[in-house]
Design a protein around this nucleic acid. Structure first.
Lengths: 207, 207, 207, 207
DNA sequence: TATGAATGAGCGTTCATTCAT
DNA sequence: AATGAATGAACGCTCATTCAT
């Protein structure tokens, strides 16, 4: 691991970050992540969303064609942001286990950190998306998931013996569950959590 | 292990089963679990629910005061049913690891089996409940969770070193995640899954 | 012209009349004909329509699935009512010219009389109907128009020499125009009008 | 009929033509006639209209105070254009029947030709105009109608015996109806139609 | 002139709930 | 218990119009 190349991925990250910036569109997406994530998509009215942004409800529809489109956009932004962050973090990791660790850290951060509300939408409000939108978002999710599947496959020798797909689902279950109980100010830090999950999925020494 | 005494817990189970029986109330709860679980609470109308039962929407309100109350009742029933099943299953297990294994099997069955839709409501529609109802259901959930916490504490020597509360949350995350991908007709059986989770949470042999 | 048979058609007429009776549905249709006809379909709100009936706007939707469906129902009712009236009137007319005269009288009555507002919708609001509804109503209009086309064909020898289809369109244009200027209390009676139109379309004596 | 004097009426025509020219205002009026005529006034949005012109919706309001004013302007333009055309055509006709024939030809052309959509607005969207605008347009319509009334009065001896006002309404009904069925590429030409209407309104030879 | 974001009143429609029968 | 018509508040969304730039 000599000179890492000027990371293109960083550019992508900053691009994606700007999509939820202080522009009207960005402020709507931020408010939407906040409200959809806490109240739920169906229980958030466009009037509440507009009020949170500080505009009238009708004005939302200059920026998005429908409430559904706002949900889709939040999902797209958060996947792309976090995919970008994972790619950026992977650029500095070579060892297979280290690469997996990096991904765990990124996902735990994304689920318990600044993007936690938007990330939870991907699970909780998946059914609020119509089939066409699901298909579009799925393309991005697959790209995101592939990073995990590849890292798991590369580290397979060191991990519990089970198909990468299944191991990934187990890990994701653990991570997704964090949302409801993990307290970043508690005794267990995010890094502790990363190591704990690494320990769970590591191959047990032969007894 | 032939003659086990007629277990008290079985009575509880049969009591709870009868609560979703062929009475009007029971048929409403079954339909509600089916519809709320597949469409979501907010996207299910009382008319749809009534149609599923074969009555008029107004008639629902002779059995329940509100749509919310139906959701709460489904949650109560499914927790009590599955708590009962766990108690019944524990009656035949003595070894700490075996007791944990029994609970894992019960929970995996409940999440991927006949009560899967009602179980998913506990996660997905928790926010559809008002604070008072949440408090009431929480009492029952705590009783359910205590079975796990006690079993984990009893088996602590054999398990990965982490507080029981946290280990329980990790296990629950894995289980809850099953709902979205586990296929009972696939290569991985429910029993395989039990053993896999047992393996994940088992203490690593000292290396 | 002996004994005309007991006219079945009269039964049909009374059936159709009852469709715009004092039932909730009938009162909605009457109010819709009145409001859609005077303000236009697009400029009539469901709240105005409901207020005219004396109910809340939401209650309209127990009787009709949509505002569009109300428009379609008005059109269907008025065509069926007037087709029934024409059939009933034809039952007493044998002479070809007399049969045509009967139809003219019926149509002039329908356009300037009690059904005048609903009849005008068939022209003015045709485009407010979606394609499927247009197709359904068109079946009924064709049945109505066929009465005219047949009568014109039967009387062709006595009429101006032009295809029945075209002559019918000319007559209909004259009739449809009445809506905007004909005053039943004016110097020209409806019967005068019938004779005037008969005169227009009669074959000119060879010069 | 070679050297006709430079007719004053031609100037008026060209004046009116230029009002729907390639200026922004003219292009808006042309687009409005097209869209209001095909979709209806109420179903055409100012955004659609602006898009048709190639500007933003807000920009329309630099040229017209309101959407209503655009409708009124289209009506004014089309009446003045067609009044001008009739005056121009009358300049070459002396015989009373020929003068009537000329007017029929003009009106049939206007209703089935290039101004057909704008002409239809005068009927279909009359109620979209408020009372003040109706009064203003009515002044122009009266001038237009007077050409017909005078021609009918002058030819009264040759026509069916009925008040000019009523005969004019009958003729107008026939003409207005053309919009929905006349096909200029069909077997019946516009000139055939003129002769047919002339025949309808001609006095029957005494029998 | 032209833009385009914003407005805000109003639209058709939905739906949990009520209640006279 | 059951019905089903009615309620009425709220919903997502539309759109003519305004106005700072």
């Amino acid at each position: 691991m000599t000179l890492s190349p000027p990371p293109l991925t960083d550019l992508r990250v900053s691009t994606r970050v700007s999509a939820m910036d202080e522009s009207p569109r960005g402020r709507i997406l931020q408010a939407a992540a906040r409200l959809f994530g806490s109240r739920g998509f169906g229980r958030t009215t466009v009037r509440e969303l507009a009020a949170e942004v500080g505009i009238q409800s009708g004005s939302l529809f200059h920026h998005f064609k429908s409430k559904d489109e706002i949900l889709e956009a939040v999902m797209v932004e958060v996947i792309e942001l976090n995919t970008g962050r994972m790619l950026a973090a992977l650029a500095h990791a070579c060892d297979p286990l280290e690469r997996l660790r990096v991904l765990l850290r990124c996902e735990i951060n994304s689920i318990t950190g600044d993007t936690r509300r938007a990330m939870s939408l991907l699970v909780n409000e998946w059914n609020s998306l119509d089939a066409a939108a699901q298909a579009r978002v799925l393309v991005l999710r697959d790209r995101y998931e592939k990073l995990f599947l590849d890292a798991i496959a590369d580290a397979a020798n060191s991990l519990v013996e089970v198909e990468p797909f299944i191991l990934r689902r187990l890990i994701y279950g653990v991570h997704a569950g964090l949302r409801t109980w993990f307290n970043p100010d508690g005794a267990l830090s995010r890094d502790d959590l990363v190591e704990l999950v690494m320990q769970l999925v590591s191959r047990k020494a032969p007894s």
